[in-house]
Design a protein around this nucleic acid. Structure first.
Lengths: 241, 241
DNA sequence: TAATTAGTGCGTAAAATTTACACTAACTGT
DNA sequence: ACAGTTAGTGTAAATTTTACGCACTAATTA
């Protein structure tokens, strides 16, 4: 854990981790130790790192999740950061936590930079704290204004989906149906299977693997991976779905 | 000017003010007193205000520009914030400025929240410091990483233009040509006059005024204003150009 | 081994959207 | 009054998106 002196006072990075699997979109919540309170993964920013690095490190430290694509979406400001629980409640909760007490970041962070990521939640099991993957519609009251973070992160994700490296949002190998599910879940609308297929193929950044995914009571779907080079090129020219 | 104790240390709000008039897009630069160095309007964030309020206040205090729509676009992080001038140079420049010396915000801000606005630069004349409206392509080396701010603000503006309250980006009364110029300038492409007109009319949030703008050696164009209520509705449903 | 389920890949028709394009009207300056 | 300039307007063609049909394949299950 970092030396208290190198952290920027009152500034934190807070992460909304969307977990995507099949057709479910959930958010990773952490329980503050020895309490019944939930919050997003968060942590202080060191003077020795960029914001992106801080977000990665915080996520890794609080959840064990590493090497994911994090996207900054909004910074939240200085007043009225206590939405469902008062400042006093929040202070009490966090100070009763041993972990929090040893960290330089207190309940008093007044500036929080919001990041989101999208991961496959079946593959991620935070080893540290108590956690919960919670469906978007069923998120309980969170500490600070973290409920606002989730709302704004989803808005940003939907906007960004047209431009962002979807490569990072799926496992290495995936089926066309996986990809379609991803888009349908996030955008909350349906696509025609054949048209979606055609659209994707136009951009030519998918590599068809010689493998199939067996197991279902049906013809096994082909697996694909991203051709990173072609994908980058396509991004330059602008991808739209 | 605010009491030093209520400001959040090392956090600033930095503003990219796009000046739009006719077909020119420029950026407002301030000269640091008694120096040859340029920077963006910036200032500290008080604990007693939201980020949006801080941005408005800072802009008002440094340039006299008030009551404009400011949009947060990105927060810049803790390392490598000295791009064209070293930390020592920056420190020397700012400390030689009487104004800066009396402010709590020093050269040491490590977190900066970027806001942009779009105003009519013919109507705005900052009364305080030396300033310059500078064409995007001719911006000199700025203090900190302010050149990056300008680049990123323009990227954000172009993206946002599809969803944002254009109502705030134009004077109260405007012609369809004004609006077209705004879009053509920002997006750096041309539109067909009739098609643009049709597109705008589809959303039905323009109110045709009984006035025309006389003065030119041509048929006087009609003036319009925004129907705020219908505009808000249209925003919900999603506007695209 | 037949029925079922779902992926793959082609095509095509309908619908929606985008683009291209030409004339008349109203004002100013001379 | 006339030349120059920009405003205002509708329609048809081209393109893109969407819907969906069909033939074929390959696995599971009853």
């Amino acid at each position: 854990m970092s030396d208290i002196n190198i952290n920027i006072p009152e500034v934190s990075v807070d992460c909304v981790i969307f977990g995507f699997h099949a057709t479910d979109l959930k958010v990773l919540l952490l329980k503050v130790d020895d309490s019944e309170y939930w919050s997003l993964p968060r942590g202080a920013v060191s003077r020795k790192e960029s914001l992106g690095m801080a977000a990665s490190r915080v996520l890794e430290e609080t959840t064990g999740i590493g090497n994911v694509f994090l996207q900054q979406f909004q910074t939240f400001g200085a007043v009225d950061r206590y939405k469902h629980y008062s400042k006093e409640q929040t202070k009490a909760v966090l100070e009763s936590s041993k972990k929090e007490a040893t960290e330089s970041l207190s309940y008093q962070s007044t500036i929080s930079i919001g990041y989101y990521a999208l991961v496959d939640f079946e593959k991620i099991a935070p080893p540290f704290k108590e956690y919960q993957w919670c469906a978007i519609s069923e998120i309980p009251n969170l500490l600070f204004d973290h409920n606002d973070f989730v709302d704004m992160a989803l808005v940003a994700l939907r906007k960004d989906l047209r431009y962002l490296p979807i490569a990072k949002l799926l496992p290495e190998k995936f089926t066309l149906r996986d990809m379609q599910n991803l888009y349908e879940t996030i955008l909350d609308r349906e696509f025609d299977r054949r048209n979606f297929h055609k659209l994707l193929m136009r951009y030519e950044f998918l590599i068809k693997l010689p493998e199939k995914r067996k197991g279902g009571a049906n013809k096994p779907p082909n697996l694909y991976k991203i051709d990173v080079e072609k994908y980058e090129t396509a991004l330059q020219d602008g991808i739209s779905y």
